[in-house]
Amino acid sequence: MERGWALPLLLCWRGRWILWLLPALAGGDAPTVSVPGAYEERTVTGVRGRAVELGCGPPGAAVVFWSFAGPPGAPEPPRAVAVAAGGRAALAPGAGALGRPSVRNGTLRLGRLRPAAQGRFLCQALRPERGRLRAAYAAVRLRVLVPVSKPAVRPAAAAVAEGAAAALRCAVREGSAPLRFSWRRHHPAEGHRGDDDDGDDDGGDDGATAGRGAALRLAPAARSHAGWYACTARNEVSSRSSAPAFLDVAYGPDAPVITAGGGEAQRALAAAEGAALVLRCRAASRPRCRYAWLRDGGRLQRGATLRLPRLAAAHAGTYACLARNPRLRTRARAALRLTVRPRPPVASYVAAPVAAVAGMALAAAAALLAARHVAHNRDQHPRLHALLFRT
């Protein structure tokens, strides 16, 4: 690349007009007043909103020119940014579009860096050497990185049926590429548990890594996939995490279980007439299923609990519990055969006690008669009299 002189910059400083020619590195002949100097190219990375410093050759330059050539391949010629001489600096109009520029000791500092500053900065430093001006040239390629914005999980709340495909997307408004994504999963919320959920999450530990990539796909979705999901987006500058979003996996109802009085599941039950009976029905489902009871095919009531406070012969029959998932509109049922044992006749309750009492009375009367006989015939039975009456 040849160094040329194509862009004149006219600056007014302390009431004097000075005409300098700024190198554009675009062809042409250099002035004969300068001694050819070093040429340097390098890359500097800055972050939007922060400060970055661009150096120009060795220190001690008498005059430093800075220009901006824009991104590679830009059709516009370089435009002036700043010139510094004698410890003072002047900024060209429009330089504020790059950030907050300032020059000190030949170094261009851009505060509150803007994305528009990404591109090539050209610098020429002139310093006197043995009565002549020696020039140093630099081309600085500035990369302006944008921190990643706070990501969001889309959709914010998703609901799928078990067995279907579920997809979550990590959306980022801005951030310099390349972006890297990761997903973490947490326990389901209390309010989203199914009837059979006792607080344990079968799908993994709290905060477990669930996947990588901008999209998380679960196909097919299982009930253990239900829970809170958060994504993290990273780039070279920063890393940020999203607020968690809940994935609800609807399932069931599974086969209902009928229990009597809190005992084990039963399919047949015998109870005495007049006894109280409580039947409960339970089925794993998300969301909570709705229950209905039937007897011999006829509807009895709604609800998971059926109470029969006093059994009668008419209560005997086949009881069925019907569980229905209101979201999926799926159903499941379980049945129980109830037999009511009749009561024994009243006489059977009375005969045994009466017979026992009668026997006791007869024995007592016989003992009394024997004692009277011994008392009146003391002389005939002295030993027996002494034993009974202890005389």
Rank of each mutant, 00 (worst) to 15 (best):
R120Q: 10
P31V: 07
L384D: 00
R234G: 00
A352Y: 10
L21T: 04
A233R: 03
L126N: 14
R341C: 10
R112K: 15
G119M: 01
A116E: 08
R290T: 09
V172W: 02
R288N: 08
A167W: 06
L277Y: 05
V153Q: 08
G119I: 03
L98I: 01
D200T: 13
A125Y: 07
A335T: 12
A284Y: 09
R193F: 14
R3L: 13
A215K: 12
K150E: 12
A89E: 11
G175T: 03
F68G: 03
P344A: 05
P75Q: 05
D254R: 11
P78S: 12
L369V: 11
L11S: 06
T330L: 00
R337P: 03
A230E: 06
L338M: 04
G94Q: 05
G207I: 01
S67F: 08
A165L: 10
E236T: 07
A189E: 06
I18C: 01
L7W: 07
H385S: 08
F68D: 09
A177F: 05
W228D: 10
A92H: 08
W228R: 08
V103L: 13
A30K: 03
R88C: 13
K150T: 10
T259K: 14
S238W: 05
V35I: 09
G86I: 05
A226I: 00
R234A: 04
A271V: 09
A323Y: 08
A214T: 10
V44F: 02
H315N: 15
L247C: 01
G28H: 10
L322I: 08
Q118T: 01
V257F: 12
G227T: 02
R100N: 00
P382T: 02
A364Q: 12
